[in-house]
Design a protein around this nucleic acid. Structure first.
Length: 499
RNA sequence: GGCUGGGUAGCUCAGCUGGUUAGAGCGCACGACUCAUAAUCGUGAGGUCGGGGGUUCGAGUCCCCCCCCAGCUACCA
């Protein structure tokens, strides 16, 4: 089994922020989980470097586009290890190998008859430096933003015949219902398709910072087409001397945020169909992280700084919080106060403290030797099927639901401690067997749950498993009762509280 | 305007194809315990499930109308 997951490639014109971190973390959870299952995984992220905004920003900064791209790409490249993201490659669209592959594929799109020279004519707002569609023009033929009168402008460029693919796209959505998710996003994309597709510009004539059009050296490709193709081109050169395309294409999941839905759910499959290539299995659209119900913005000063959190609490805490607090796929609010509350009550109190109390009891009552006895049937029953349930949820990209499923067992184990009251059993020699069973049941519970948590909190989970001498991190080991540890060693608080 | 979602306890949200007294976490109040990162566990208060009609033996869950919020309505990436 091969599993190929991608993040969008991030546009180098901006600095990395929480939104980038969010998508990368989610993709990493998927990648790590599928590796646990023993699948062959490829996880791709990278940077999108062409296009007018970069060219303009470079000019303003007195540098070449390439210099600017080189400089900013480094900042995104540095983000992944900081988040503990296990990406297998980092693609840059300015890579000559990407450029060559893009030219090859788009040439094929043209050879297949999906490109034609045309004139784009439309109402143009000089202030926006952009054409306006008929539907967004304000009364009096004015720009809806600047309220100035629009002028009629023309530009010659090559068009991608998207309109010719409308039927094929509708078929795709019908035959492959999972193609776009969640359902609300699927509906959105499908209704867009059904409302009628127009041809779109494939090239730009005035710009030079882009992939040159092989059949006309006066044009470069419109940056979106060059960017989308990264998912495909990367496979051909990510590993030296090897072409991974046959192994990993089509991609299993493209993770994106909702602002780029149209490109990924409509243009992208259309382009692949036009090129005669298989379309991805799935595009999953996640929501926005909001602060106080508003989109985060620097000017409002309501930014949750991922770097600050990692610095203070570690990457695991950030990873956990973002996927725990906001139902993955929906918009949701985040805040520093929420973060601290989740960190303390769930990571420190529920989970970290469960590990502490369990280990300390084994040390205190059994000198660190885990009794090798039968596990409590009640807990066995309540853990039955858990790995399968979690895997099923992850297959549906329900990352928050999966985490909740696991967390219910963590709460259950804390309840079990109180039910059994091992400190009472320890006072009575005749209850030794009961104490043995309770301790073994708890240690195994902590272990099993921690194996499941590895994708979310890879660092601390691995640390805890080390303390339990549990070296098997595969998904088979997530089954309760699969590998009762024999000894435990002392553990510093996994998630220490601040101050 | 059209389309797609959403409006459920103080807060954040679960509630699949309609079915017993509407759930969870957090917060709050009270209590229990002491193994543990003063952590944990129990009990309780708190909701006319946006509003109004309708279908049904029965609706948060289906239909109609209305109100409010968000996103999309194409070439900014």
């Amino acid at each position: 089994m091969a599993f190929y997951v991608t993040t969008p490639i991030y546009y180098v014109n901006a600095a990395p922020h929480l939104g980038h971190a969010y998508t990368t973390i989610a993709a990493d959870v998927l990648a790590r989980h599928h590796r646990q299952r023993g699948e062959e995984v490829f996880f791709l992220t990278g940077t999108d470097e062409h296009g007018e905004p970069v060219a303009l920003a470079a000019e303003a900064a007195g540098m070449t586009p390439r210099e600017l791209a080189d400089q900013n790409a480094e900042r995104f490249k540095a983000l992944a290890p900081l988040l503990n993201a296990s990406n297998d490659f980092f693609i840059r669209t300015s890579d000559p190998r990407h450029v060559a592959k893009v030219q090859e594929i788009l040439q094929r799109v043209k050879d297949n008859g999906y490109v034609e020279l045309g004139t784009y004519e439309g109402w143009y707002c000089p202030r926006c430096a952009d054409f306006k569609s008929e539907t967004e023009i304000a009364d009096g033929n004015r720009c809806p933003i600047h309220l100035i009168e629009l002028t009629r402008e023309q530009e010659e460029n090559y068009f991608f015949k998207l309109s010719a693919l409308q039927e094929r796209l509708e078929q795709l959505y019908e035959q492959q219902p999972q193609f776009a998710g969640p359902d609300s996003r699927r509906n959105e994309a499908l209704s867009f398709i059904r409302s009628g597709l127009n041809d779109v510009s494939l090239t730009r004539a005035k710009l030079t910072w882009g992939v040159p059009v092989p059949w006309d050296d006066g044009h470069v490709f419109y940056v979106w087409f060059d960017a989308l193709l990264n998912y495909y081109t990367a496979l051909s050169f990510a590993r030296d001397g090897e072409d991974l395309t046959d192994t990993f294409w089509p991609a299993s999941v493209h993770l994106i945020a909702k602002d780029i839905l149209k490109f990924h759910c409509v243009f992208w499959p259309a382009l692949l169909i036009a090129a005669g290539l298989p379309v991805p299995e799935r595009v999953f659209v996640h929501g926005y992280l909001l602060m106080d119900g508003h989109k985060m913005s620097k000017s409002l000063g309501n930014v949750l700084d991922p770097f600050e959190i990692i610095d203070q609490f570690g990457a695991d805490a950030l990873r956990f919080y973002l996927l725990r607090d906001v139902s993955f796929g929906q918009d949701g609010s985040v805040s520093a106060a929420d973060f601290e509350s989740r960190y303390e009550s769930e990571l420190a109190n529920d989970y970290g403290n469960l590990a502490s109390r369990t280990i300390k009891m084994v040390l205190r009552y059994r000198d660190g030797a885990v009794p090798q006895v039968a596990l409590d049937e009640t807990i066995v029953a309540e853990f039955a099927g858990l790995p399968e349930t979690v895997a099923g949820q992850i297959d549906e990209i329900e990352l928050t639901a999966a985490l909740e499923e696991i967390w219910q067992r963590i709460r259950r184990l804390n309840r079990y401690v109180d039910e059994q009251a091992p400190w009472q059993l320890a006072k009575d020699e005749t209850k030794a067997a009961d104490l043995d069973r309770a301790l073994a049941t708890l240690v195994e519970g902590v272990r099993a749950v921690t194996v499941l948590l590895l994708p979310w909190i890879p660092e601390r989970a691995a640390q805890l498993l080390g303390t339990l001498g549990a070296s098997d991190h595969t998904y088979a080991a997530a089954t309760y009762g699969a590998a009762l540890p024999t000894t435990v060693s002392d553990l510093e608080p996994l998630f220490p509280k601040p101050q």
